[in-house]
Design a binder for these strands. Structure first.
Length: 729
RNA sequence: GCGGAUGUGGUGAAAUUGGUAGACACGCUAGACUUAGGAUCUAGUGCCGCGAGGCGUGGGGGUUCGACUCCCUCCAUCCGCACCA
């Protein structure tokens, strides 16, 4: 069960108890690639946001591992990882994670009961709970002491759940003067806080910056922290008590799932030992089973299959787990290059030809999942010599999500004659708290109690019009609402709340485009989605403006037809204005395509069609070029008009893309915006051949300038030829 | 707390290299037309003002002849991470 399906220890759907169970899982050693996954980010063209998320996730930290001997346990050492080996003389205690394997062994009899008790408490908390519970400092002394590797002093060993078993070695050397968590722990348990920073006050908080000078630390004295780190590592290595080390937060990735729908592993077992199925027997396909459910004793669904239902089986049994979604999503793009190849996943010459994906448009929600796994997988295949690149996606654009507008009903829980009851309260009655009088009317009993406990519940948006709920439809919608009661607005309606969220079946806010396609056609929908705004931006789905795009396509269509709807095209040479409009559009649309600015691309088409309409242009040559230009945006209408233009048989897909010719855009005159002190006051049309001086002269001589000059002389006149004029007064 | 992003009319937005802020579209206002079509056409539409004009890109400051754009600072919203030693 997924974590979010578990609520308060029971399953969200059936309310069944959920217990945690240890399971043997396959996992992939992504950790082995941590460093390369980090450095590889420098050579791909992705957003900083995704790169940072991945860097964060990989969590590289540089430091040292140090071994502390345990007093009275010959040959036993506690290994810790620290990023601040320079503060080693500030160590006044050590903390092990409660799950650390040494805990039982080193705990003295005196502390055994307390340690057992603490371990038990910690084990009841999941890792999530622990993280949510940062404020509470807890821990327990074990009675054991470690030996400081430099000073030889005895250092008490504690256990505490702020130390995570899953990171580093599951143990830390605590330096309260330099680490806030250690400081908090020391304060709480009254442990010595040793200050090894020169002229730094640590009475109120730890000092974590790496800019202090070290003191009271023998060979590290008077060194600034950064140098002391290097020096400390040298010394640690020299004395053989540890070494410089890089630690990653990234964990190995679990690669098995206990469900039916996934690629089966080509693995069989003899006893408890797994073996790989020989290549000759591949592929292993999913066996048929009676129910897609786990077995009675909790084995995955595949355990239901007997040997005969597998297309191949060997040994005592086949593997029951299946692969996760990221098995396929990590490398499917490679298979696309050579989908019918029976012998290998992709032939060498094909992958050498296609290389990695040039442009990947995908959601940023996969930053630390799919997008990391695919990189890992690609690097592995590169190392194995199967593919000639080690980054899968060269450039990536994260398209924004189209969000939904959810509707909510508000369920009030109350008790009546000792019985728990629910009623749905309309939004405004809830907001202004006027529901109470209504409730006591419906339940006229002095023993009525209610708690101010409103639960917003998603209502299907098809049951809601303009935030008003169709009550009868709502009752029929789900059986548990059949007898629902309501407190309505004064006008007798139920008003819902709303929120913009991700579109999702579970939120009942999904809008399908089918109806719009029916009404306006797929071209309109396609262009409207582009027109909504920049590709990377998320926004709620709102069809208010779709008419504008639809009208544009109608207007475009009208250019080809007379008012009776018959095709009417002129075969004469296009006018200068026609050509100017067309070529301006070619240029802009091309530029917009290059920078993935589809919304401005659409508006450039609109401008073009508006201009051609004003020019009453029905010129075949112009319209033919424009149709080709539009075809990636509105493929259906373009294809249809292509036929009307007389290209049959054939498809517009085979037409060559229009080429921009700058000659048509050359202007003899430019309307200069004339500014005074940076404020645009009027425009003045001047020949483009004018020099700076000529422009300046013409502007100052113009009658309109007099008003702003007020008889004075300008301090300065800035002329940017072909652009603007600014007169400084 | 750390990191990333965003902030412009009534609305979605545009301004690509520091050079006319609000293109294009929705909506709205007034009008025309009519075969009444999710039509078409004309004019208007950032705010204040009768006007001249003033103000205006989250707030404040700066650089510049000129700033939505560059710098400093603050605020708000969204996303990701968060006891990682």
């Amino acid at each position: 069960m997924a974590n979010d399906e578990v609520v308060n220890g029971v399953s969200e759907r059936g309310g069944h108890p959920v217990e945690q169970k240890l399971m043997r899982q396959w996992s992939m050693r992504i950790k082995a690639y941590a460093e390369r996954l980090l450095t590889g980010l420098d050579k791909v063209d992705w957003t900083d946001s995704i790169k940072d998320q991945q860097r964060n996730w990989i969590g590289r930290s540089q430091g040292a591992s140090v071994h502390f001997k345990v007093d009275g346990f010959e040959g036993k050492t506690i290994e810790v990882f620290t990023t601040r080996p320079d503060t080693i003389y500030g160590v006044s205690f050590m903390v092990l994670a409660p799950e650390h394997p040494y805990v039982d062994e080193i705990t003295t009899n005196e502390y055994r009961v307390a340690v057992e008790q603490y371990k038990k408490e910690a084990s009841l908390k999941s890792e999530r709970d622990r993280q949510a519970d940062v404020k509470n400092i807890s821990g327990q002394f074990t009675g054991a002491y470690a030996i400081h590797p430099f000073s030889g002093e005895k250092v008490p060993v504690w256990i505490g759940d702020y130390v995570l078993a899953s990171y580093g070695t599951g143990a830390v050397m605590a330096v309260p003067c330099g680490d806030q968590r250690d400081w908090d722990f020391a304060k709480h348990f009254n442990i010595e806080i040793r200050n090894i920073f020169k002229d730094i006050d640590i009475s109120e908080a730890a000092y974590a910056e790496k800019d202090a000078v070290i003191t009271g630390s023998d060979f590290l004295n008077d060194l600034p922290a950064k140098e002391a780190i290097k020096r400390a590592i040298e010394e640690i290595e020299k004395r053989g008590i540890g070494k410089g080390k890089v630690q990653y937060r990234l964990r190995d990735a679990v690669f098995s799932r206990q469900r039916y729908w996934g690629e089966p592993f080509p693995v069989y077992y003899k006893g408890e030992t797994p073996y790989l199925v020989d290549d000759a027997h591949l592929p292993i396909t999913l066996p048929e089973i009676d129910k897609y459910l786990p077995t009675e004793d909790g084995e995955p669904p595949l355990a239901r299959a007997d040997k005969a239902s597998w297309n191949y089986s060997q040994g005592d049994r086949m593997e029951y787990n299946t692969m996760p979604g990221w098995a396929g999503s990590s490398w499917y793009f490679l298979r696309y290059m050579d989908p019918h190849n029976e012998n290998e996943f992709v032939a060498k010459d094909k992958v050498e030809y296609w290389q990695n994906v040039d442009l990947y448009i995908g959601g940023s929600e996969h930053a630390t999942g799919h997008l990391l796994y695919a990189r890992f997988w690609t690097k592995f295949l590169f190392d194995m010599g199967y593919i000639p690149f080690d980054e899968p996606f060269q450039k990536m654009i994260n398209q924004g999500m189209i969000l939904g507008r959810s509707s909510f009903v508000f369920r009030l829980k109350f008790s009546y004659k000792g019985e728990e009851k629910f009623i749905f309260v309309s939004k405004n009655r809830m907001d202004n708290k006027s529901f109470a009088s209504e409730l006591s009317k419906l339940y006229p009993d002095s023993s009525l109690e209610y708690v101010l406990d409103f639960t917003p519940i998603h209502a299907d948006i098809s049951l809601v019009d303009n935030d008003v709920l169709d009550i009868e439809a709502f009752k029929k919608w789900r059986p548990d609402f059949a007898d629902a009661e309501f407190i309505l607005e004064d006008n007798g309606t139920y008003v819902c709340g709303h929120e913009v969220e991700k579109m999702s079946k579970s939120k009942y806010n999904v809008q399908t485009p089918d109806e719009l396609v029916e009404k306006f056609g797929a071209d309109t929908l396609r262009m409207y989605e582009m027109f909504l705004g920049p590709l990377e931006q998320s926004k709620p789905w709102d069809t208010k403006g779709i008419n504008g795009v639809h009208n544009f396509l109608r207007k475009f269509w009208r250019l080809f037809h007379d008012k009776d709807g018959n095709v009417s095209l002129s075969n004469e040479a296009p006018t200068k204005d026609n050509l100017k409009t067309l070529h301006k559009t070619i240029k802009k649309v091309e530029d917009d395509l290059d920078r993935f600015s589809f919304n401005t691309g659409v508006s450039n088409f609109m401008i073009c069609v508006n201009e051609l309409t004003d020019q009453k242009c029905n010129n075949r040559e112009i319209l033919e070029q424009l149709t080709i230009l539009l075809s990636p945006y509105a493929p259906h209408i373009a294809e249809e008009l292509w036929v009307k233009l007389g290209h049959q048989p054939g498809t517009i897909l085979q037409a060559s893309f229009p080429t921009f010719n700058a000659e048509y855009l050359v202007e003899a005159a430019h309307a200069y915006p004339v500014s005074f002190n940076g404020k645009m006051r009027f425009k003045l049309e001047l020949p483009t051949s004018f020099s700076k001086e000529e422009v300046e002269k013409a502007v100052l001589a113009d009658a309109q300038s007099q008003k702003w000059l007020e008889g004075g002389q300008p301090k300065k006149v800035i002329v940017v030829p072909g652009k603007i004029v600014n007169v400084v007064l």
